[in-house]
């Protein structure tokens, strides 16, 4: 096993519980998605995993060794893509890659070769001698990823690597991660609050909320937990929290949320409730009614009672 976190507890100053009996397992060659809203504990879990945080309890093992932050050999085997862009903006991409390669002991011809390989892989081969200041946000993100790949780590941890970039760059990065996982035997932990990203690339997903893993499994198995549940989306002219309360009180209704004047209603299997729902909405102007297959978002919604959009919990 590449990573094992079991019953991990981490408290911050003021006794805030950041990780609450947190569990995570990653096997060789696997892409694991860590999904949760901002503040859920994803970054804390990663810092504990790479040894940047001491934990207050539980087991943290990487490559079968206890992670206490002092084992420098472990660091050689891990690549961390930080949530923030951490490259030197004044120096060229080449110099940035060279620096990070040197930190991990690469030199000479091997280093030059790796810089070219990584440059190709992140799509910056022809812009290696430009300074990141001249790059778009997406290019900087790609360089940020490249800096973590120089030393060919066996475990790559990507902490929200697509925050704040355009859809095209986001697509590039997702394809890149998929490709990396397919062509190498590297294990990847990918944290995100974008459900569709995790759904697209992860072999297994851990859903984290308030420092605790509330569900895990393959995307398919998690969605199957929703099987049979009826999902409806009813858009009205002006939604009201009072209606949410009324809809929640209906028999067979499991969860109701209101987002942008759309009521999202999840009901038990086989329940015929459309007429009851519409009756509750008789005082409102209905614009659109739709039903759809469950998604990972619905799983998250069911498990947490919250919806996940751009890291905000509604």
């Amino acid at each position: 096993m590449i990573v094992k976190m079991k019953d991990v507890i981490k408290r911050y100053q003021g006794n805030t519980l950041a990780l609450d009996y947190f569990d995570l397992e990653v096997h060789a060659g696997e892409v694991v998605g860590l999904l949760g809203p901002n503040g859920a504990g994803k970054t804390t879990a990663i810092k504990a995993l790479v040894g940047l945080h001491e934990v207050d309890g539980g087991i943290v093992e990487v490559f079968g060794q206890a992670q206490n932050g002092k084992n420098r050999d472990l660091r050689q085997r891990i690549g961390l893509v930080t949530q923030e862009i951490t490259v030197y903006e004044e120096l060229s991409a080449y110099e940035n890659l060279r620096f990070f390669g040197r930190l991990y002991g690469l030199k000479g011809e091997a280093l030059e070769q790796r810089i070219q390989e990584v440059g190709q892989r992140i799509g910056l081969a022809d812009r290696l001698h430009d300074i990141p200041k001249k790059y778009s946000g997406g290019m900087k993100r790609r360089l940020n990823i490249g800096c973590a790949l120089l030393h060919e780590p066996e475990l790559i941890i990507m902490d929200e690597p697509t925050v704040g970039i355009d859809p095209q760059s986001r697509h590039y990065i997702l394809s890149f991660v998929k490709d990396l996982a397919k062509k190498t035997n590297v294990s990847i932990i990918y944290t995100s609050h974008y459900i569709e990203e995790v759904e697209a690339i992860a072999d297994r997903v851990y859903i984290v909320d308030q420092g605790h893993i509330i569900a895990h499994g393959t995307t398919k198995s998690l969605i199957e937990q929703m099987k049979g549940d009826a999902t409806m989306h009813i858009t009205v002219k002006q939604g009201s929290p009072a209606t949410v309360t009324k809809l929640k009180a209906l028999p067979d209704v499991k969860e109701v949320t209101l987002q942008d004047d759309t009521y999202h209603v999840i009901a038990h299997a086989g329940a015929v409730i459309l007429d009851k729902v519409l009756a509750q909405l008789s005082q409102e102007t209905i614009v659109h009614v739709a039903s759809e297959q469950p998604t990972l978002e619905d799983v998250f919604l069911m498990l947490t009672g919250k919806s996940l959009r751009d890291g905000e919990v509604a």
Binding site: D73, E84, T86, L103, Y104, G105
Partner: peptide
Amino acid sequence: EHDFFSPFKNRLLMSPL
């Protein structure tokens, strides 16, 4: 400040040095 009082710190502390 750049190296240790910014997010860069994590990247450097993560290195084997």
